[in-house]
Simulated scan of single mutants.
Amino acid sequence: MNIALWIIAGVLAVAYAIGGASQIMLPKERYRAAAASQHWVDDFSAGQVKAIGTIKLVGVVGLILPPLVGIVPELSPIAACGLMLVMAGAATTRFRRQEWALMAGDTAYLLAFAFLAWGRFALEPFGS
């Protein structure tokens, strides 16, 4: 189970690192134009989009770095909970915009982070 949790964490970390970095580095208009699924940025200011990207990157660091270096690895499932909350906000935005298929994708990510948090809190905690 430990290997499966690491694989899930790694895949999610790569996806969210790319997404968060692009939100920070690209101007809002260019980020929106980069993919058809990014219409949600119309509801937010450029600063808010960059803040969301920063939160994603901080979550990715918390998900991977503490257990990797062995310093307070218990932060990893807490970071997964934080990213789960980010995805709850994303799903709420999709719901409000009536983007049902995209909301289902956001909900899938939310459930992946929930599974990761549960796995690291209960199934295979670090340091056990």
Rank of each mutant, 00 (worst) to 15 (best):
N2R: 15
A4L: 14
A4Y: 11
L5N: 03
I7L: 12
I7C: 04
I7K: 02
L12S: 00
A13N: 04
A13Q: 01
Y16L: 15
A17C: 04
A21W: 12
A21F: 12
K28H: 06
K28L: 01
R30P: 00
R32T: 08
R32A: 13
A33I: 01
Q38G: 02
H39I: 14
A46W: 05
A51D: 08
I52M: 14
G53W: 01
T54S: 14
V58H: 06
G59A: 08
G62N: 08
L63A: 02
P66L: 03
P67T: 00
P67A: 03
G70Y: 03
G70R: 07
I71C: 01
V72L: 13
V72H: 07
P73A: 07
P73G: 03
S76N: 06
P77H: 00
I78M: 10
A79H: 02
A80Q: 00
C81N: 06
M84D: 00
V86H: 03
M87R: 05
A88S: 04
A90N: 08
A91R: 00
R94C: 09
R94S: 07
R97T: 11
E99Q: 15
A108H: 10
L110P: 04
A112M: 15
F115D: 09
W118M: 10
W118C: 10
W118F: 13
A122I: 15
L123K: 11
L123A: 15
E124F: 13
